[in-house]
Write a protein that binds this DNA or RNA. Structure first.
Lengths: 212, 212
DNA sequence: CTAGGTAACTTGACGCCGTCAAGATATGCT
DNA sequence: AGCATATCTTGACGGCGTCAAGTTACCTAG
C-alpha cells in the first residue's frame, strides 16, 4: 500500500484526489468554475483542507498545467514514434495539426499552460518552469532537424526560428481557444496555410523529389 | 453644451468618467485591479452607479476594448499615411513591429481586445463585434495589397493568408504579454525572424529592386 | 505502551467581489 | 405644476481566496 511517497492519512489521497477533481471541474464547467471551495466540496473535505497540499490556488493551477505538459509531451512523443523523423515535411505538418488539436481538445488546460494567469499574474512553480522549458527544448530540437532537412529555412538559428514558428502555432491555438475571428471549422485550412507559409512551399521552391 | 448624446445629469459625465478612470486603473495596476466597486469609488459614486451606464462588468470591458481598437486603428492609419502603400515590404515590416509595440505598450487592453475574457467567457457587445470586424477587414485588405506586390505569396486567398499571418502576429504579441518563453529584449529579433519567414526572404527570392 | 509532536483537517472570520432590489432624488416634458 | 423617467444610493446576498485558531489522527521516542 505504501508507495514511499508521503501520503495524507486522514483522507488517504487528498492531493491526487484534488488534482483529479480539479481536472473534472475544468473539463465539465471550465476554468472559471474552479474555486478552492468548490473543489474541496467536490472531494468532500472542508474549504481549507486543500491548503495543506497547495500553498495557494496558483500552486494548484501550476500542478494542473504540469499535467497538461505531460499530456502534450506524451502526444508529441507518440507522433514522432508513429511517423519517424525521416520525412520532415510530413512530420511538421502532422505536428502542427496535432498541436492545434491538443489545444482544441484541452482549451482550459492549454490556457493554463501558456496563459497569463500563471506566467504573468502569478508565479510559475519551479517545477512548472522546468517542465515547460524541457517541452520547448524538444521543439527547438525538432526545428533544428527540420532546418537540416531544409523543410524550414536554415538562416536564423534554430532557437529563433523555433520561437517564431511556435508563435504562429500558439497564435492559431489562441484564436481557436479564445474564439476570435476564426471558426473551428476553418482552422484546419488555416493551419495548412500557416504550414505552407512557414515551409515556403508557396514560394516557387521545388519540392524535394520533383527537381531534375 | 448638449451634444445630442444622452448624458447623465447627476454626475454630469459619468459614463466617460468611468471609462477614463477604468483606463487609469488598468494602466496603473493591471486589469485584475479593476473592479466595479473600486471603479465607482475612484469616480466618487456609489457601488452600483456604474450599472446605470453598463449592464454589467462585461459591457464595461467591451467598451474599453472598443477604445483599444480605435487606438490601434489610429496607429495603423498613421503608419500607412507615413509610409504609403508603394513599398509593401517596408510597410509590412513596420506594420509587424508597430503591432507588437502596441501590444507591448497596452498589454491589458490588448488582452481585452483579443482575449477570452470577452470573446469566450462573456459575450462581446454588438458594437465591439462590429468594430473588431472592421479592424480585421482593414488587415485583410492590406494583405491583399501585399499579395499583389508579391511580398506575400498569392496562392491562398487574402482571407486565409491574412488569418495565418495575423495568427503569427497574435502569437508573438501573446508571448510577449503573457511572459511565456520570450523575453521582451528578444522580441524585435523574433519579429524580424517572423517577417522573414512569412515574406519568404529567406527562400532565395530576389528582393524587389535588386533584379534586372 | 504511553507521551509528545506533528501533519492533516475543520470551523470561524475578514475583506474582497458582482449584482439585484428597493428607495431617494433630480431632471425634462406635458 | 405634476408626472414619468433617468440617475444615483443604501442594503443585502452569495461567492471568492485565505488567514488564525482549534481539533483529530497518526508516527515516533522513551
Amino acid at each position: 500500500m505504501s508507495t514511499g511517497e508521503p501520503k495524507p492519512y486522514h483522507h488517504g489521497e487528498l492531493r491526487p484526489a484534488l488534482l483529479h477533481a480539479a481536472s473534472g471541474i475544468i473539463r465539465e464547467a471550465g476554468i472559471d468554475a474552479l474555486s478552492m471551495r468548490r473543489l474541496a466540496d467536490r472531494v468532500g473535505v472542508s474549504r481549507t483542507a486543500p491548503y495543506h497540499h497547495f500553498k495557494d490556488k496558483n500552486e494548484l493551477l501550476c500542478a494542473i498545467a504540469e499535467m497538461g505538459f505531460a499530456d502534450q509531451d506524451r502526444m508529441i512523443g507518440a507522433l514522432i514514434e508513429g511517423i519517424g523523423t525521416d520525412d520532415g515535411a510530413r512530420l511538421f505538418e502532422n505536428w502542427v495539426h496535432a498541436y492545434i488539436r491538443f489545444a482544441h481538445d484541452n482549451p482550459e488546460t492549454y490556457d493554463l499552460m501558456y496563459g497569463k494567469e500563471i506566467w504573468k499574474q502569478g508565479e510559475p512553480t519551479a517545477v512548472l518552469r522546468q517542465v515547460s522549458k524541457a517541452s520547448f527544448r524538444l521543439w527547438v530540437e525538432l526545428v533544428g532537424e527540420l532546418q537540416r532537412q531544409k523543410v524550414l529555412p536554415a538562416s536564423p538559428p534554430a532557437l529563433r526560428t523555433a520561437q517564431a514558428c511556435w508563435a504562429t502555432l500558439h497564435g492559431l491555438a489562441r484564436l481557436l481557444i479564445d474564439g476570435v475571428y476564426v471558426q473551428p471549422g476553418d482552422l484546419d485550412e488555416i493551419a495548412n496555410t500557416a504550414v505552407e507559409l512557414l515551409t515556403q512551399r508557396a514560394c516557387g521552391r521545388d519540392v524535394p523529389g520533383t527537381s531534375a
